[in-house]
Design a protein around this nucleic acid. Structure first.
Lengths: 226, 226
DNA sequence: TGCTCTCAACTAGTATGGTAGAGGCTGATT
DNA sequence: AATCAGCCTCTACCATACTAGTTGAGAGCA
């Protein structure tokens, strides 16, 4: 019975998780100024663990820490978003390439089950549940190509965009369109129609452009004017 | 005269750079144990900046910091290498896809110049210079596709592998083969032969497999037995 | 009114002391 | 000889004092 994988958690870990969640859930807004001292007081810890959490969040590109200046939640950079989107596209294209070139039949039942649940979530108007299944499907795609780690790239790119989407209302029409994409993607994989799968994915991801543009116009204050 | 881009450098930054260079140049070996106190003494600073550098290197996956345990240089994980390679392949495939679908003529002279220098470095037996130009060519490819940031992914994946290559002798035959690939890649881009470019890139990157396998057998002690 | 200078308040960076956990060594016990 | 307990040392973690650079508000002057 090996417990080797269990790592002790530190105060700094807790602070990091807390701040990360706050940023992604937009309880902390892009542009907000943070202070080691203030956060430390709020969480009842010393400056040190807060400082370490700041360093890690700076590494993640979520905070901007500069000597002797107030630390702030990074504003959303359109070029960074574009870069993350490119990365996700590149990764998912290659994942699909592999999935369409190999035998993925072991996953077909799970694809179908996921799609069925997506439809249910859509019909009963539960966008939260739908988004969760959306993530899960892309995760399944990575797994079926034996590239599960690639899902990390997809997830981090997607969560950046999703943070923005919290700013706008969830769009039912959007859900229907993406559901349709999902069904087509799965069909292509089952039938090893590689080229079709790739072009559907390109269209799928490019749908986000319109959404982003709208949000940027509505909430210019959260964006980094490059 | 704007100096806005100039960020003050801290002691912690210096320590980070120093340790990073030492790890990548194999002056610090995978498995080596480090200590905040020892490094601090060596560099003539306090423990604090060293600690912060450790945190950042841990984030980069180069160190392994655990509470109350000696910090160590992470051993090389074959699965992590495989993942990095996949990422690089995916990114460069899409970069090439763009490069072949757009007008890159503004870069053709720079491609040619780079290749000419590569040949010179190869003929005069200067593998260091050759590697430098190799990086530069891949950087140029990203720029020509207007995806310069993608070079970061390529570079970090490549530098992981290159660290390993320091363990083995540089192979002249290897240089000749990759030079040939480079020439073909550039030719395809110039003539917008997308499919050809992609398959050449796949072959180009898969050359690394054999090298990796050899090194792993010769230096098992640096590898993480997954 | 509007500009500039000064200064106080606030920022993160650095140094250092104390703490608790991990691991190795020694010696006793079986 | 093997094993186990207890101790001793070493580790990183956390708290806190101090330092140095940034910022912004307000006084004073034009």
């Amino acid at each position: 019975m090996s417990n080797a994988a269990i790592e002790r958690r530190t105060t700094a870990d807790d602070v990091y998780d807390r701040l990360l969640a706050d940023i992604l859930a937009l309880r902390l807004f892009p542009g907000d100024k943070l202070s080691e001292v203030v956060i430390a007081r709020q969480l009842g810890v010393s400056r040190q663990p807060v400082r370490e959490a700041f360093i890690r969040l700076d590494n993640d590109g979520l905070l901007r820490v500069r000597p002797q200046r107030a630390t702030e939640v990074r504003r959303i950079s359109l070029s960074a978003l574009r870069d993350a989107r490119f990365l996700r596209l590149a990764v998912e294209l290659e994942v699909l390439h592999i999935a369409c070139s190999t035998d993925t039949s072991a996953f077909h039942a799970r694809f179908d089950s996921n799609l069925k649940q997506q439809k249910k979530a859509m019909d009963s108007g539960r966008p939260d549940r739908y988004h969760q299944l959306d993530y899960k499907l892309h995760h399944l795609l990575c797994k079926s190509a034996d590239r599960e780690f690639a899902y990390e790239t997809v997830k981090s790119s997607k969560s950046q965009v999703d943070r923005l989407c919290l700013l706008s209302l969830s769009d039912t029409r959007e859900m229907i369109e993406t559901y349709d994409d999902h069904c087509q993607l799965v069909a292509c994989i089952k039938e090893n129609r590689c080229e079709d799968a790739l072009s559907i994915l390109r269209a799928h991801l490019s749908r986000l452009d319109a959404v982003l543009e709208t949000i940027q116009l509505e909430h210019a204050e959260y964006f980094d004017p490059n």
